[in-house]
Design a protein around this nucleic acid. Structure first.
Lengths: 151, 151
DNA sequence: CGTTGTTAGTTACAAAAGCAACTAATATTG
DNA sequence: CAATATTAGTTGCTTTTGTAACTAACAACG
């Protein structure tokens, strides 16, 4: 056996990432859950539509890297709650344009602001340089669909 | 509204953390799932027992910050698969000491090594200084049980 | 055109997570 | 020492996720 007897869970990136992700998600969840009864995927869909305007479900899937069934269910739920409307595309009737309603837009604006504040709160006593490094690393690790295979 | 119109999902820590956590977990899952048929919580329990020796379920809950029902189910599953044994405590018959079997220990050693390698792989082209900052940040963010409340 | 292949989105079913209520044992307190 | 409160761990039930199979529309190719 190689000499990694000292290797600890606290050093294992997937573990640390999960812990941090869970902690921070839990923290922000309270906003969209309590205020608008949304689930995480729903809030993300709202964010995408609010931030980038009208989109199809497929486009959100690609941008957010969320599976289409999750998106599908989130969209249905958001439609029921009147946060968005769907419009069938004239040229290609398979796809539908998703758009926030007035209510949806208001929720988006509110949540975006809460998100921004929460983000600053999370970073409150971490040096700015570290936060930069952190975000850079996270973006890189996220874009690793090739990671399923061996080094 | 404050001037944060440029605030993007890609800047939002909980989002980035989730994406990175998901990507990296998926990557490592293949090892313990394919080789030992374990779920994430099961692998974590194994890791704790292998790393820190005999423990009770409660102790694992606290160390790993995993809910007791999840641990309970993972322990049952691991017992069925003969990766660990339970021994009722003589002095306090509510709690039971969990201990890896021979098989469990072998699996632990193997997975620990895979984990160490996977960890290096994840960090493969990120500067060491950034990785340090990353891990420091993650540990700090994780320890924020107070984050549920407002800034 | 019609047959085959793709694509957007949905649905059905199975696995897993979350939560609350429960059991059994120990601690506390009057 | 009896009544009450706590603690370790489990179980049952509901919500959420993952996977695969499905529908409907379009594309391509003979």
């Amino acid at each position: 056996m190689t000499k990694n007897d000292e290797f600890d869970l606290q050093d294992f990136l997937p573990y640390l990432l999960n812990q941090a992700a869970e902690a921070s998600s839990l923290g922000f969840q309270s906003y969209y859950k309590a205020k608008y009864g949304m689930l995480q995927t729903e809030w993300r869909v709202v964010f995408h539509l609010g931030r980038y305007g009208e989109m199809t479900a497929k486009q959100i899937c690609q941008r957010a890297q969320i599976h289409k069934t999750k998106i599908s269910r989130a969209v249905s739920a958001l439609e029921v709650k009147r946060f968005l409307t769907r419009t069938e595309d004239e040229k290609d009737r398979r796809q539908e344009a998703l758009k926030l309603t007035e209510t949806g837009t208001r929720a988006y604006r509110d949540l975006r602001q809460e998100a921004s504040r929460f983000d600053q709160y999370l970073a409150r006593d971490i040096p700015a340089a570290d936060i930069d490094a952190l975000k850079r690393c996270l973006r890189q690790i996220s874009g690793l669909d090739a990671a399923k295979t061996q080094p």
